[in-house]
Design a protein around this nucleic acid. Structure first.
Length: 464
RNA sequence: UCCGGCGUAGCUCAGCGGUAGAGUAGGUGGCUGUUAACCACUUGGUCCUUGGUUCGAAUCCAAGCGCCGGAGCCA
């Protein structure tokens, strides 16, 4: 079926031409003047198209008057200038084909307001709402902008494995991947599960990060990035965590921590500018209904310089701060949520990049600084969201890396191939990870991360 | 996992010891180039589950289940 998108029709300045649209009814208003107003949405944009359905249509009494929100239809007619205010163009229907009626007594999302919590229970229908249509289009633009940004900078898109045997420094609890019988797995002489009999012949899990594999390709192709699903089996119940989420992980060869921070800042600003330019209609909705001032916020951040401070400076600022913290800031302890929020929201009011964390709170692969107390790590903190990016310069010196693997209590055998990247032609390199849903949250103002991914997976929730 | 809050009509909520309410959606009638349409009437409920206190529980207490917010873990 050849059809025009409402997105294009509403921009059209050509009138009195024949067009066909297909979409879902949002609302019907009857006029006793002998016609009905139908508002159609086809998902191509936020706005609806107003259709005039005259009672001279052959199926007016039999079908048009029985249309309720959610019904699917196609309309062919003349695009005309609207005589009334509220819309510039409207479609005067010549034929209306109804594909599917929608019973208003059963359909859960009519014209009335439905809470986000309720919509999560009907995740198969929620993309038909204004909010989720807008979130989905912004999410799409952020994904496209991500590829565009890295491709323009000559980064190669690579696909790291989803099933893995390396547990990447214990970034979180992992989901086991196994074909062994769950109720009665084979056991070895010590009574432990015998994974040599499993599908892969050893313990396998869903990935918590593609970083270690990503490094292999950075150490060959130069600059690469991944953009794929990531899994954490943590029992996290917050509005910022998912068990399955999408992560973007660039990795650069011949790069240090400063290059890494520059890339992170440039990438975030690129995203802000991209959605400001290409999602303006949807952002207008978020600006009005979800987070007042979000457009101004994104525009300001796209222009501003991100604050950069060392971890040690951050601790000093927090200790002098005129604020009550539940946890006293102390050198050597990780920054608490309240500390990150103070820095990004109260103290600077801009994104903050914190650099050079104590080695004791960071994983083995981060590069040791010359003070031998800190490592070349960075976190990017956003107002309201908190940590959005975590990254580091990687340890490229084999002897130091081996010592750190030992020190952190890891088994060197698990990282033999990772170490060989240092053994054979090592190179300074750096990268970071960004949680895609968190940036969607930030750019839409949506409060709960479960509402910026089509089908959220959280503890006790795997419906759909 | 810990702390706090909340589960009442299809939906959004009020009621907080004396026998069930509003708005909205749906129905009927009226009116209208309408646009969150409007006006009148109207259908609609195991008050999450189980147990306890009480003459009497939607209301108080306890446990369970579910959801939300904060914390931790992190992206």
């Amino acid at each position: 079926m050849k059809r025009e998108l409402i997105k294009d029709i509403l921009k059209s300045s050509k009138f009195d031409i024949a067009v066909t649209v297909g979409g879902w009814l949002r609302t019907r208003r009857d006029s006793k003047g002998g016609f009905s107003f139908l508002e159609i949405n086809d998902g191509s944009c936020f706005a609806n198209l107003q259709v005039i359905a005259d009672n001279s249509l052959s199926n007016y009494a039999t079908e048009i008057e029985k249309l309720y929100p959610g019904s699917s239809l196609s309309v062919t007619g003349q695009l005309v200038e609207s005589p009334a205010s509220g819309q510039s163009v409207e479609l005067k229907a010549e034929t209306i084909k109804v594909f599917g009626f929608c019973d208003p007594l059963e359909y859960p999302i009519g014209k009335q307001r439905v809470s986000f919590e309720k919509l999560r229970e009907i995740a198969h229908l929620r993309p038909r709402t204004n909010s989720f249509g807008a979130v989905t289009r912004v999410r799409n633009n952020l994904a496209f902008a991500t590829h565009k940004f890295f491709q323009e900078k000559n980064f190669f898109y690579i696909n790291t494995p989803i099933i893995t045997a390396s547990d990447c420094e214990g970034a979180g609890e992992m989901f086991r991947v196994s074909t062994l019988p769950a109720d009665n797995p084979p056991v070895d002489d010590n009574g432990n599960v015998d994974y040599t009999q499993d599908f892969f012949g050893k313990k396998a899990s869903l990935t918590v990060s593609g970083q270690l594999e990503g490094e292999t390709h950075a150490c060959a192709l130069g600059n690469i990035y991944t953009f794929g699903p990531t899994f954490r089996a943590e029992n996290s119940n917050t509005r910022r965590h998912l068990a399955e989420f999408w992560m973007i992980e660039p990795e650069m060869a011949f790069a240090d921590l400063n290059d890494d921070a520059n890339l992170a800042e440039e990438y975030l600003k690129y995203l802000f500018n991209y959605v400001l330019e290409n999602s303006s209609e949807d952002l207008g909705f978020f600006n009005q209904r979800i987070e007042k001032g979000i457009i101004e916020k994104l525009a300001k951040l796209a222009e501003s310089k991100f604050e950069r401070i060392s971890y040690t400076e951050a601790i000093e600022i927090l200790r002098k701060a005129d604020a009550k913290f539940e946890y006293t800031p102390e050198w050597g302890a990780d920054l608490q949520s309240e500390h990150e929020r103070y820095l990004a929201e109260t103290c600077f009011g801009t994104p903050v990049i914190v650099l050079d964390y104590p080695k004791i709170i960071k994983p083995f692969y981060m590069r040791m600084n010359s003070d031998e107390k800190t490592v070349a790590a960075m976190d990017v903190l956003l107002p309201n969201v908190g940590e959005i990016i975590g990254g580091s310069q990687r340890e490229e010196r084999l002897d130091v890396l081996n010592a750190r693997i030992d020190e952190c209590g890891n088994n060197p055998d698990d990282y033999w191939w990772y170490c060989e990247l240092r053994k054979f032609g090592t190179v300074p390199h750096a990268g970071f990870g960004l949680g895609f849903e968190r940036i969607v949250q930030f750019c839409t103002g949506m409060q709960n991360i479960r509402d910026v991914i089509p089908f959220p997976r959280t503890p006790n929730n795997v419906e759909f």
